[in-house]
């Protein structure tokens, strides 16, 4: 598992797409933190909102485009290996569960490091690291990474997961945020399986995102165990 996680982590840092994504996130974090006080002029903020204003840039970016970022880098993490048949080298050496978990932890570590650097940059201006917002953001990413892995196991064509990544990446935040606030009883139950609902509370309910991620990984693992490569 750790060997696969390490390889996934290193591979993510090697690609040009990853470098651009990380740079983009860092630049947005830096400038949004730098100009956060200018941005907030004329806007009435609560005490806690004012306290977390420096993180507004990275938070908005991850909230709205997080899935798109994760999908663009890792949409084909499993199905590419199946299509190219390199998966045969892995499954003849280690358990299928280790492959799924290794890939998950590798991608998580990449985003963890990226987010840590972003929050450290922000801390230059805010003079503190907002651990709560960091954990909230990380929980959202964990959910999205698990979803990406699940789709990559279910859908065998990498081109399809890329297409789906764009569609879901653009629609998921809008639908998810609408679901979190809608009173429509027919659809409002869906909010419990989207990550956004758990992010709008000022408590630790965001842990639910990690639980949902574990469930998705368990499903991905069961499907992958039955899959012939």
């Amino acid at each position: 598992m750790f060997v696969i996680a390490k390889r996934e982590f290193i591979n993510l840092f090697k690609g040009i797409k990853s470098i651009i994504t990380v740079l983009f996130l860092l630049i947005v974090s830096y400038y949004s933190a730098k100009f956060s006080e200018v941005i907030s002029i004329g806007i009435e903020l609560t005490a806690s909102e004012a306290e977390g204003i420096h993180t507004v840039g990275i938070l908005t970016l991850i909230l709205l485009l997080g899935y798109l970022f994760v999908a663009s880098l890792s949409h084909n993490t499993v199905n590419r290996e199946m299509e190219e048949r390199t998966i045969r080298f892995l499954i003849t050496r280690t358990s299928r569960q280790s492959i799924i978990l290794g890939k998950f932890f590798g991608i998580c570590l990449f985003w963890f490091v990226t987010l840590i650097i972003s929050f450290l940059l922000i801390s230059i201006f805010s003079q503190k690291v907002d651990l709560f917002i960091f954990l909230q953001t990380m929980s959202l990413l964990i959910y999205q990474i698990a979803l990406i892995i699940l789709l990559s196991v279910i859908i065998l064509k990498p081109s399809l997961t890329m297409f789906l990544g764009i569609i879901v990446g653009l629609s998921f935040p809008a639908v998810g945020i609408w679901l979190a606030f809608t009173s429509n009883t027919w659809v409002s139950w869906i909010k419990f399986i989207t990550p956004y609902y758990y992010l709008f509370n000022e408590d630790y309910t965001f842990v639910m995102n990690v639980i949902l991620a574990v469930i998705m990984l368990a499903i991905a693992n069961q499907i992958f165990k039955r899959r012939e490569c």
């Binding site: 190219e84 048949r85 390199t86 045969r88 003849t92 358990s95």
Partner: peptide
């Protein structure tokens, strides 16, 4: 699996 070596056919 740890004690076997495999060279599958048609693998890249």
């Amino acid at each position: 699996k740890k004690r076997m070596g495999v060279m599958p056919d048609y693998s890249t």
